[in-house]
Design a protein around this nucleic acid. Structure first.
Lengths: 143, 143
DNA sequence: TACACTAATTATAAGCATTATAATGTAAGA
DNA sequence: TCTTACATTATAATGCTTATAATTAGTGTA
């Protein structure tokens, strides 16, 4: 139930001494219930009805806060806007190169790759990122 | 020998009907001999002695051309500038989160992941990207 | 409940990488 | 050499994100 997720997220914010403002609450709520992986601007637009005076900087600031305490993951793709993903479970993403759609993809984490990289490069590895690119079913048919 | 690589690259440009201009030649030469993974600005700065009037747009234009014919790979990291990698062999990258250093890392391509993603999502997969993040040996010691 | 302190929000401007535009210059085949 | 289409240049514009400074508002404490 997403209400539980929201409460848990708020608990983590309190624990990190982050103030719960109405804007923060709304951004978090939106992210948790988002089916897609919204951009900062998606979130801004979605909430401007509720918060006509909200600044886009507020959205960015809050997303940064959420990212820093690990509530949210930021997906970056060069030029295009970042997308934000509420961090429920570990998963990868499959991205359509035609329409930009992002689909979650469960796969066991590539721990073996990380440990081999540590051995070979001498790095202390913290994490990795992997994405798969292609054409989604919709774009395949309509080409 | 990097001279051979350069000649082969020029051959591929000719084959793709891309004109060989002095600027193009210089960007390509720089990329092939680069030990690191330079940004567009790195390349621009490195060549401004030789081409005082070269525009930064030229660097970007040429990098795009090289990418489109598969000579060069573009590595994107959200806000930061893209980095460009002369496409010799398939490999992954290990990136230092402290100093930004990028190290090549050989690992067998994750074809299995791609094919599973195709099955699960219905996408027609074209490629994937994977990077490993951590702290490099230099940054570990000097913390 | 009221106070005070500190952090968050707002509005705006700035920053930065990258791309678009239009005029000029030039590679390469005839 | 000539011609033409493409590349380069200089500059402006774009778009995402962050910085700034002033105002507003959470939250712990009295």
């Amino acid at each position: 139930m997403s209400e539980d997720k929201l409460q848990e997220a708020i608990g983590r914010l309190k624990h990190a001494s982050v103030r719960i403002t109405p804007q923060r609450h709304a951004v978090l709520d939106f992210l948790i219930n988002a089916k897609s992986h919204p951009t900062a601007d998606d979130i801004y637009k979605a909430l401007e009805g509720k918060f006509p005076n909200m600044s886009v900087a507020t959205v960015y600031n809050n997303l940064r806060v959420f990212r820093e305490i690990g509530l949210v993951r930021e997906l970056t793709y060069g030029d295009a806007s970042s997308r934000f993903d509420y961090n429920t479970s570990k998963h990868y993403h499959v991205i359509c190169e035609s329409c930009g759609k992002i689909v979650d993809f469960d796969y066991p984490s590539l721990d073996e790759v990380e440990s081999l990289a540590e051995k070979v490069t001498g790095f202390e590895v913290s994490h990795h990122r992997m994405e798969i690119y292609g054409t989604c079913p919709d774009c395949k048919t309509t080409h």
